[in-house]
C-alpha cells in the first residue's frame, strides 16, 4: 500500500541533491545568521539599557520596525536596494544579513527579559564595590541573564531554520525549494518532502541536545 504512493527510488535520487542544498544554503544561512543575531541581539539589549535617551529611542524605533515587518519584504527591499549599487552581489550574503538582523530584534527582546529578571540588588552590589560598567555586565549581569535567555535563543534559531525557504524571494533555492522543484519535475512530492523533513529533523535534534548541554554547563 505504502509502496504504491511512496517511491523509494525517487527518495534515493532526491536525497543527495537535497542534502547538498541543505548544507550549502539552509545550514549555512542558519548558522551564520544565528551567530550574527546572537551577537547583535546582545548589543541591542545592552544599548537599550546603557545608551542615553536620545540614542535609545531611535534604536528602539529601528528594532520595532524591523521586528514588525515581514522577512520576505525585508529580503526584497534590501536585495533590490543593494543590487542597484552592486549588481553582482551574492544573494546568499544578503540573506544572511537580513535573517541575522531580523532575528536579532527578537533575540534582543529575550536578552532584555533576561536582564530585567536580575534583581536590582545585583546592580547595587556592583555599584557598592565600584565595579566599572564593563565588568558589571561581563562578570555579574550577563552570566546570570544569559542563563535565563538561552532556551529562547535556541527557539529563535530553530524558528530561523524554518524561515529559510523565504530565501527564494531573492532567488536563493534552499532545500525546501529544491524539494518542491524535484517533486514538480517527477510529478510526486511526497518523497522529496519526506527526505527534506528527515534532514531537518536530523539537524534540529542534535542542536536541541547541544543547547540542553550548554544550559547545563551554565548552571551554577
Amino acid at each position: 500500500m505504502l509502496a504504491a504512493i511512496f517511491d523509494w527510488n525517487l527518495a534515493v535520487e532526491a536525497f543527495p541533491q537535497l542534502l547538498v542544498a541543505f548544507l550549502k544554503v539552509t545550514l549555512l544561512v542558519t548558522v551564520v545568521a544565528s551567530l550574527l543575531s546572537i551577537i547583535l541581539g546582545l548589543v541591542w539589549a545592552i544599548g537599550l539599557r546603557q545608551l542615553p535617551a536620545w540614542l535609545g529611542w531611535p534604536l528602539r524605533l529601528f528594532l520595532d520596525f524591523v521586528r514588525m515587518t515581514p522577512i520576505p519584504v525585508q529580503l526584497l527591499f534590501v536585495f533590490y536596494g543593494v543590487v542597484v549599487f552592486r549588481p553582482r552581489v551574492d544573494a546568499l550574503i544578503i540573506g544572511v544579513i537580513v535573517f541575522g538582523v531580523h532575528y536579532s530584534t527578537y533575540m534582543a527582546e529575550s536578552y532584555r527579559a533576561g536582564i530585567e529578571s536580575i534583581r536590582s540588588g545585583q546592580w547595587e552590589a556592583a555599584t557598592a564595590l565600584s565595579l566599572p560598567a564593563t565588568r558589571t555586565w561581563r562578570a555579574v549581569i550577563l552570566p546570570q541573564a544569559i542563563r535565563n535567555t538561552l532556551p529562547s535563543l535556541g527557539n529563535w534559531t530553530i524558528a530561523m531554520f524554518k524561515d529559510t525557504p523565504y530565501l527564494i524571494f531573492i532567488h536563493v533555492a534552499e532545500m525546501v525549494t529544491r524539494a518542491r522543484e524535484f517533486g514538480g519535475m517527477k510529478f510526486s512530492y511526497i518523497e522529496s518532502f519526506t527526505i527534506a523533513g528527515l534532514i531537518f529533523l536530523a539537524a534540529s535534534y542534535p542542536t536541541a541536545v547541544l543547547m540542553r548541554k550548554l544550559e547545563k554547563k551554565l548552571e551554577y
Binding site: 547595587e124 565600584s130 565595579l131
Partner: peptide
C-alpha cells in the same frame, strides 16, 4: 556597604565574590 539581602553574586564562588573588586577595581 553590606545589604539586608546580602546581594552576593550567585554565579561566582565565595572566593570569586570577594576577589572580583580588589582585582578589577
Amino acid at each position: 556597604m553590606v545589604f539586608q539581602q546580602f546581594n552576593l553574586f550567585p554565579n561566582m564562588s565565595v572566593m570569586e565574590n570577594i576577589i572580583e573588586a580588589p582585582i578589577h577595581v
